[in-house]
Design a binder for these strands. Structure first.
Lengths: 205, 205
DNA sequence: GTCTATACAAAGATAGAC
DNA sequence: GTCTATCTTTGTATAGAC
């Protein structure tokens, strides 16, 4: 009987992680309690604590289990999508992939947006993580042999474009929290056409 | 003696508002307590409550006393700055003014950024306020006789540009919370050149 | 108007039974 | 592994003195 089978620890952790992601994406880390999570997974509050150790532990679990693993350049290079040739990947094409990934997971994307601003507090568990993010992302991207238009240098010309693209994504994600509704992908496409304009980027997007 | 003069209610309210703005901009509304505010202004926690009624009242005070009053188009039209002619104001010039205003008040800008994402929670006191913001701002802007390049229609062509500009500002403001440092005005200038490009917008910016 | 004292609820965490 | 009971702290809010 499935209903009488004890749930494995992995399943429990996954349930807890998912419930926490849902609740925190809507109320923030400071806006929820362990009891809220417990109620959602049908456990007692100490029951949840048994798995996560502490409330901060819950957050670490979220970041390690959910972020940093999806929507990465590595993942993109394995898709076989246009511009994903591992020898000369196209940066705009990767950004398209990243945006599509975010758009397909609105709850996770909202979670990210909520956490990244909540983490301005110097005593927030994820403060350092987010402060260092831009530098870390830049370094990660720098390891790939992106195909650039003639005469463009990665370390100089692209730094601004990468930063602008990520700023734009954050800006759109905030706008997604409001009305009237906008379409993430459509909105990104507009900016992409500006940041990677024709004719210079034709064939390099 | 100034030091023995009882502070007037207005001064007290201003002190409390300012302390709350400072604390909330760093920790969010859910991240602070009335005691934190009380300590900062040198009062007891019930003393603060005497002025604000409740914790939510503190937030209302912030919004009404601080927002919606500064960085407005009305204000811009009175500056006499380039593009501020009330007969034919320039929208990009107003955005420059808005960005300069935000950049000169980093704490208030951060407060705004923190609150606007915290308010995704449907039970947040400012939820409705922020949900409606884009529509309300669009309507407010629509009341001015902006000077546009030949053939451009406000209601159609400009809707997207206004939205993109505001998305960009939100995106930059999130980026400001992180390292390495970026310059708000410089970053906006880059986007402005893309959203209001030459030669079409020459003389209209 | 501002304080002390206090009521009341909620939250995180621990102890220990089963 | 999960629960009940409980400890401790913190936070909002009220009552009442000065």
């Amino acid at each position: 009987m499935t209903s009488r089978t004890r749930k494995s620890p992995e399943v429990r952790r996954a349930e807890i992680t998912q419930a926490a992601a849902h609740l925190i994406s809507q109320h923030g880390y400071n806006g929820i309690s362990l009891k809220d999570v417990a109620d959602m997974v049908g456990m007692s509050q100490p029951g949840v604590l048994h798995y996560v150790g502490s409330k901060e532990g819950l957050l670490s679990l979220l970041v390690t289990d959910i972020y940093d693993a999806y929507g990465t350049p590595e993942e993109f290079l394995q898709t076989g999508l246009p511009g994903s040739d591992p020898e000369h990947p196209h940066l705009p094409a990767y950004f398209d992939y990243l945006v599509a990934h975010n758009a397909s997971q609105p709850e996770l994307t909202q979670l990210y947006t909520v956490l990244e601003t909540e983490a301005v507090a110097t005593n927030h568990p994820l403060h350092d993580y987010f402060i260092r993010r831009p530098a870390e992302v830049w370094e990660r991207y720098s390891e790939f042999p992106w195909l650039l238009p003639k005469g463009m240098e990665w370390a100089t010309d692209m730094r601004v474009r990468v930063r602008m693209s990520l700023e734009v994504m954050d800006g759109i994600q905030i706008r997604l929290l409001r009305g009237p509704k906008v379409d993430y992908i459509q909105e990104w496409d507009r900016f992409k056409a500006l940041i990677f304009p024709s004719p210079l980027w034709d064939g390099y997007r």
